[in-house]
Design a protein around this nucleic acid. Structure first.
Lengths: 150, 150
DNA sequence: CAATATATGCGATAGAGTTGCAATAAGCAG
DNA sequence: CTGCTTATTGCAACTCTATCGCATATATTG
């Protein structure tokens, strides 16, 4: 999947560089690769996973700085915190006020985006409060782990 | 508030010890005090805050172990992760499947429980998935910080 | 009150994330 | 394409949360 076609890789590389520059970020190899990983996997990623998936060598500190820069620029956002890990994702399917919910398995730690799961909120926050984003995390057991428990 | 009446303190101390034992936990001074803090404040607490509020001396490691033991026993649960801090609270107002939402101010970091805020979820997780808990975090600005931004 | 299993204190350690600084590479003008 | 300026990277040291092993202290049980 990573080397299907030079052409399409290059094409998306150009698209990604453009996206970086549009957001006021220099299009370095490291940044392009990290951003490409988000597009390729389409999944929420933590620094650790990014490090493991990198084809290009990149320092730990650089990955952290890249994630922070991306977050500040709004290219990605922190989806949720999993244990000690900050998990980021593209804000693709998220409106300004609410993000799609995430699922996290308490047994194996597997996580997933719940795109067909809708969350409606009702009620008032109180005077002066302004809600900007709504993060929902469903904890439970994934199919593999429910089978194991049977 | 901490020394209003010896009597009520002692009474609740006995109640707390009982609660610990009911959950299979030894009623040590440290554990009783930590659990009492959750009841007295009624607020979500992180290890750091607990350390600062302790009247009794207790080691950092012990507080961590106490929080883990309480969580394993179900006496408290992790409400959310605030930056690098795990924040715990009594499962008082939480049913088995859903927890009351929390608010977190992105400017000052202040957090609060949203008791009058209800969240309804709709949809399917997918075959084999079992939802056990639903954590909702609303991010935004608190009254103090909205005033500042005006 | 003594025996025993469990908690605690202390020090060392692990792991996520940050920072300072020198080296490097992107972006831009010519 | 070349050189200049400035942002980014690599490296190493560091911070901070959390955990672990082990000796000591303490709660529970009989």
């Amino acid at each position: 999947m990573s080397h299907q076609s030079q052409k399409s890789c290059m094409a998306s590389a150009r698209r990604i560089s453009g996206l970086l520059r549009e957001n006021g970020l220099r299009a370095t190899k490291g940044r392009a690769e990290v951003l490409a990983l988000f597009f390729e996997t389409g999944k929420p990623l933590a620094q650790r996973q990014i490090m493991e998936m990198l084809r290009l060598k990149l320092d730990r500190a650089s990955v952290y700085r890249i994630l922070n820069a991306f977050t500040a620029a709004g290219v990605i956002h922190m989806a949720y915190v999993d244990g000690r890990h900050r998990v980021y994702e593209l804000p693709d399917r998220c409106s300004g006020r609410s993000c799609h919910p995430h699922f996290s398995c308490r047994s194996c730690g597997m996580t997933a985006c719940l795109e067909d799961f809708k969350v409606h909120s009702q009620g008032t926050l109180g005077k002066g409060f302004v809600a900007e984003r709504q993060k929902v995390l469903i904890e439970g057991l994934c199919p593999d782990c429910t089978e194991g428990k049977k």
